[in-house]
């Protein structure tokens, strides 16, 4: 058992170890980069009204008078024990700031993924099966067109049409206004619509490419000659071999939903963590930036690991150790 560890388990153990190492490295890099950004939190907070006296007093209060390495170790020690410290500029606990917003980000990501992933898989599969048909060309060109339009444009046009002109939906999405199903629908329609435009295209094209690759393979030709029905052929023969790259594309797109939706949060005033992190960077609030980065990074690593696991589980050749 120990010598011949299940490949899935071995991957899991290896990945977890690597993930820890990556997180540590990322935290060092982010800390260093934030530290070399011009100006510190005290200067940002006081701006034009800074006097040498108040700057010095504020730096002491924020702990910015300590050497860089000390500040890093202090933060790291806190993080390991589950307390990433207090935000420099707002003096609120970092966990409280993030705790207020992370559920909103997760909810938005989950709703978007729940719609975008099945849709992308369906469209990608259709495009792969009917390669070269008008449907394939329509989907492909549509995807390229959508992915080329910046999301702020899609979001703004959606607001202009659906809110300003037609008055169907609210232009702002206060997540706290969700008290009923219809309320939730009204809040989520436009952000989710915009995010789907961006993510579906990518996942769809990846699905098509991976599946098309398999459909051209000799074993599919063989199966077809044996008389396997088309649906079975695609879903049970080709798909398991294509699922690895598809799952990775899905993981990449979903991890983007977690921290990369700053435009959506800004335009719809949606209270998520991306805006929090951008605030943190512009205010040089290092503990906040660090903790947000760790969360995004951990989320990303987790998703990629899940994708690899799905790839292994779906593919019999990878499932069994050789």
């Amino acid at each position: 058992m120990v010598g011949r560890m299940n490949p899935l388990l071995r991957m899991l153990v290896q990945r977890l170890g690597l993930a820890m190492l990556s997180l540590l490295l990322v935290s060092v890099v982010v800390f260093t980069i934030t530290a070399v950004l011009p100006g510190d939190a005290a200067e940002e907070l006081l701006g034009q009204d800074a006097t040498p006296e108040t700057l010095a007093a504020l730096r002491v209060q924020m702990g910015l008078d300590q050497p860089l390495a000390m500040r890093y170790l202090h933060w790291l020690g806190g993080l390991v024990t589950g307390n990433p410290g207090r935000s420099l500029v707002s003096d609120a606990p970092v966990m409280e700031l993030i705790g207020n917003r992370l559920p909103n980000s997760l909810l938005l990501a989950a709703v978007t993924a729940a719609i975008a992933v099945p849709l992308a898989l369906l469209l990608g599969t259709l495009a792969a099966v009917f390669r070269g048909s008008w449907l394939d060309r329509l989907l492909n060109n549509g995807a390229v067109a959508l992915v080329s339009v910046p999301e702020f444009l899609i979001a703004t046009i959606a607001v202009l049409v659906l809110s300003v002109q037609l008055g169907w939906l609210p232009a702002l999405s206060y997540a706290s206004d969700i008290d009923s199903f219809s309320g939730a629908v009204r809040v989520f329609v436009m952000p989710v619509l915009t995010l789907c435009c961006v993510t579906v295209a990518q996942m769809m094209r990846m699905t098509r490419a991976a599946l098309a690759d398999q459909l051209d393979a000799a074993y599919i030709e063989m199966a077809r000659l044996k008389g396997v029905p088309p649906v079975r052929l695609v879903l049970l023969h080709a798909m398991p071999n294509a699922i690895g790259p598809i799952a990775n594309a899905v993981a990449l797109s979903t991890s983007y939903l977690l921290g990369g939706v700053i435009v959506i949060e800004t335009i719809f005033h949606y209270p998520g963590v991306a805006k929090l992190m951008v605030d943190g960077v512009s205010q040089r609030d290092i503990p906040l930036v660090q903790t947000c980065t760790m969360i995004f990074c951990a989320g990303y690593l987790l998703l990629v690991m899940l994708a690899d696991m799905v790839g292994i589980l779906a593919n019999p050749r990878l499932r069994h150790a050789r």
Binding site: T156, V159, L160, S163, V164, G167, P170, A171, L172, T266, I267, F268, H269
Partner: peptide, 10 residues
Amino acid sequence: ARVNALLSGD
């Protein structure tokens, strides 16, 4: 976003 939210009545 501010102006749009105003003009849409939010």
